[in-house]
């Protein structure tokens, strides 16, 4: 059996006393597209930097195709990270894109030109127009696309993208998304994307991982933020419309606790339940699995998502705007 492209074991990364990331075990298979979702400061960028071998974890091990992977090792040339803030070297676009190829000892001018031009075309930039442009004569979106072209020129086995569409216009974002998918289709590149572009993330990835407070959740989960009142071993969240949510309180003291509920444990019912809420259907999205639809329900500041059979949606008319009763498990995890 082939080893996973990435395997992470007992990884801890801290900045001073603050633990930024803690992963007991994690694997990524070749050719997967994985979305990393989570609030700012959750640990997404840290995970990408560590997998991209640009930062060494405080402790723990990373394996690439079964072999230990470290910064400056040979395997680091097969992985490429596009950081959150695009950065170009103080040289023209051609030389920027050619840089990674040159350090890989590709010196033949014809090959360099072919690879650079192909990468620029992939990100929707005309080579004739942009190749000789200096680094300072590019817009934000163009800079981001050139930065992506620098990575695509290397035909990486793994492409790690840290919010690639966060600071660009819709047009550039569209071209970036298209280029990433093309790279995946051309070279079966494994792609990990941290992004807040939920429409894109709903559409493209094979898997979604949630990152919160430095922990990674590989199952479909939902977060319910506080404030929680802790009374007699119960955690209570009061809503403005008079509804209450009551769970068993966290067994240890946690600052600003957040409840975690697996999507698989959420059910739609047609009458109020002991642990549940009356919520409004906000979205019904199609999934890669044609028979299932993703339902998003919300109440005030919380929203929950889970999958449901297409026939049930039709039968009970679960359309956006309709109220539904949601049954939740009494026992939840806390973070």
């Amino acid at each position: 059996m082939l080893s996973p492209i990435f395997e992470v074991k007992n990884l801890v990364h801290s900045y001073g006393a603050q633990i930024a990331l803690k992963v007991d075990h994690l694997t990524v298979e070749k050719g997967e597209i994985i979305a990393l979702v989570g609030p700012n400061g959750a640990g997404k960028s840290t995970l990408l930097k560590i997998l991209g071998l640009v930062e060494k974890p405080t402790s723990g091990e990373i394996f690439f195709k079964g072999k230990p992977a470290r910064p400056f090792s040979q395997v680091s040339r097969k992985i490429s990270l596009l950081p959150q803030q695009p950065f170009l070297l103080k040289r023209n676009v051609f030389d920027n894109v050619a840089y990674g190829l040159k350090i890989r000892k590709i010196r033949d001018k014809q090959i360099l030109r072919e690879k650079v031009y192909k990468a620029l075309e992939l990100v929707g930039l005309s080579p004739e127009e942009f190749a000789r442009r200096p680094w300072y004569a590019l817009s934000g979106g163009e800079t981001q696309r050139v930065a992506l072209a620098c990575r695509l020129a290397l035909e990486p086995e793994v492409l790690l993208l840290d919010e690639p569409t966060a600071s660009v216009d819709v047009y550039s974002a569209q071209l970036i998304k298209r280029a990433v998918l093309k790279a995946h289709n051309l070279w079966n590149t494994t792609v990990l994307i941290a992004s807040h572009d939920y429409a894109w993330l709903d559409e493209v990835p094979h898997k979604t991982w949630h990152i919160f407070k430095g922990h990674i959740f590989t199952d479909e989960i939902n977060f319910i933020w506080g404030p929680w009142q802790i009374v007699d071993g119960k955690a209570i969240k009061q809503f403005r419309d008079g509804q209450k949510l009551v769970f068993n309180a966290p067994y240890k003291n946690i600052d600003n606790p957040v409840a975690i509920i697996e999507s698989a444990k959420i059910n739609i019912t047609f009458s109020p339940k002991k642990v549940g809420l009356k919520m409004i259907i906000k979205q019904v999205n199609s999934e890669i699995n044609f028979r299932e639809l993703k339902i998003v329900v919300s109440l005030e500041d919380i929203s929950l998502n889970f999958k449901i059979d297409e026939d049930l949606v039709k039968k009970y008319e679960l359309w956006p705007g309709n109220p539904v009763y949601i049954e939740l498990p009494g026992q939840v995890d806390w973070i």
Binding site: F72, S80, L82, F87, L89, R151
Partner: peptide, 25 residues
């Protein structure tokens, strides 16, 4: 720029190439 180091490492430089490119930048 602190992103220079991250960018160079993400493009696969070795230690010598990292120093040389930083000097050139």
């Amino acid at each position: 720029d602190r992103n220079l180091r991250i960018t160079l490492l993400s493009l696969g430089v070795n230690r010598f190439q990292l120093l040389l490119t930083c000097l050139w930048e």
